[in-house]
Amino acid sequence: MIDKTNNDTTDLVPLQEIYEEFDFLGDSEAQMEYLIDLGLDLPRMPADEKTEQNRVHGCQSNVWMVTDYDDDSRKLHLHAESDAMIVNGLIAVLLAAFQSQTPRDILETDIHAVFDRLGLDRHLSPQRKNGLNGMVNRIRQSALARLEAQPD
């Protein structure tokens, strides 16, 4: 069922590498620049998936997100993209934290600990935090719906 190549686990920067880069850079503006690079390198979504239905609301920029469940591996695959590169960088962080996990793993992931570790809570504007939370909610809802449909 999974035939998509974008945002595949192999293309993603691991969370540990993002942590190390953030620690190395230290300065919040330099960290944002790094997010831009992560965003520029994020694999793109197919244009036909950028529909109104797949739009995540609450973001200042456009964000599209699709989740696919793989029955064999019982894992949820995420595909997302924004037209703003800093937001794309944040998507890279979310994908690093959530990609190809079981719905239960996703629900048990403490994403705010990840944001804390990266200092994002301090450096993001309230609007951007809103958008980020919108994306997190969308991922969690997909995981929850899947878990309710098919308890593991």
Binding site: M32, E33, I36, Q60, S82, A84, I86
Partner: peptide, 12 residues
């Protein structure tokens, strides 16, 4: 270029 990215980069 998204306005959000431009504003950030201009601030740099």
């Amino acid at each position: 270029a998204h306005p959000q990215d431009l504003a950030f980069l201009l601030n740099r």
